[in-house]
Design a binder for these strands. Sequence first.
DNA 1: GAAGTGCTTTTTGCATACGAAAAGCTGTAT
DNA 2: ATACAGCTTTTCGTATGCAAAAAGCACTTC
Lengths: 241, 241
Amino acid sequence: MTSSPSGRRAPRGSLSAAATRRVERPAPLRQAVYDALLELIVNRTLAPGQHLVEAELAEYLGVSRQPVREALQRLQTDGWVDLRPAQGAFVHTPTEEEADQLLAVRSVLETYSAKLAAEHATASDVKLLRKLQKAGEEALVSANVERLVKANADLHAAVATIGRNKVLSEMIGLVDRRVRWYYTPIARPRSRDSWNEHAELVAAIADGDAERAGQVMHDHAEQTRQTYHDRKTSESSTDSD
Amino acid sequence: MTSSPSGRRAPRGSLSAAATRRVERPAPLRQAVYDALLELIVNRTLAPGQHLVEAELAEYLGVSRQPVREALQRLQTDGWVDLRPAQGAFVHTPTEEEADQLLAVRSVLETYSAKLAAEHATASDVKLLRKLQKAGEEALVSANVERLVKANADLHAAVATIGRNKVLSEMIGLVDRRVRWYYTPIARPRSRDSWNEHAELVAAIADGDAERAGQVMHDHAEQTRQTYHDRKTSESSTDSD
DNA sequence: GAAGTGCTTTTTGCATACGAAAAGCTGTAT
DNA sequence: ATACAGCTTTTCGTATGCAAAAAGCACTTC
């Protein structure tokens, strides 16, 4: 589709090695803005419900309103901000109901993803999973929440990738990021159990046992969901920050 | 058109009846453009792979490039066009692989949706489903492909809505629309069986039998997927349009 | 003192303008 | 005749400008 050896591109001379690496694209500004804003939202610099004024963001980021607008629109379709017709963008405020719905969908998608992974995993795939598992265990020991969250995300992403279904991977990526956004503040308690379950999952995938992998992932996801609810319940009284 | 005799907006007095109906919003232009372009893509006026030039679309639709750009970006995140960094938008060309992946994801999501529907369905929900089922059967008799496709979409959308999971509903909406885009040209053959399966599904939901509803929906989706593959296989020789 | 009304300010939505990159074309040299 | 190089044209990406709508504020009135 893209590469025709003697085709229109490939200006002059024969380049071989550099062919694989896509020419350094000008880096679309809107993408950078999107990433920057997403980061600000995820790390709570921009609080839920906050009104985002295009001009302010533009000045803060040193760009014009245009790329900011475009980034905000994508942020909307991805569920990070709400774009009210003539009022602008507001950081999305997650409701308990929505969080639960996301966790439910995540459970379903991840379960299927685990099954696919078990069916497709090669030796090197398993090797990668074991490496990520190890990284997770180490992060667990270091008690570094941020590292732990990242390790968790990496493992799940790897499983999705191994499943060889790009559509599914992308969806899981979207859902997981939002779940993590809601969930990060309470990610600590369940870490030990969580990584034990991960180990089981990796084992099932290594065995190529799709049914078991699916079952383990399902239980894992439901555990996470349960933990979220427990937290929420005990939350009603504690009024931190 | 939006004229309210005593002022543009009810300030904070006591209005009761009109409170439910949101004041007619100015209808964001980008949304209209999005809908228009999506329509053009779905009905093949804009062919897969075609290069969409912003200026052309803008002139054709009688607007400036700005709303067109914004619409194109949303179309990208929804998977309808590919936005190449410095080259513009191209109507997405669905590959067989991607179609299958979408059908697989759809199967998983719809199965869960059916389970939820069975758990949540009220008497009036069932009534609605039966009405939609009837509409589908009638469309089947009329042999009107377009009507049939719409009836099918309506039923599935209704099931999703009854499941009371908005996140899931939206996802199903996105996936289904794309599946239908790929699938419409070959929607005919399986209609009869398809609606028999629908009837079974509605019955299971009416019984509140989540397990059975899920099973029926799963089989239904997999049948669709199978049909797609069969078509594709017999397609290699026939070279229509 | 409270409520309503009109005005001002702010902010979005859309349009236009300009610079830069990419693609295509033409001319020339081998 | 072919291939390369430079130029031209097209089209995107970003910035800026302008009008309309919404929110906020102060004033007036009861």
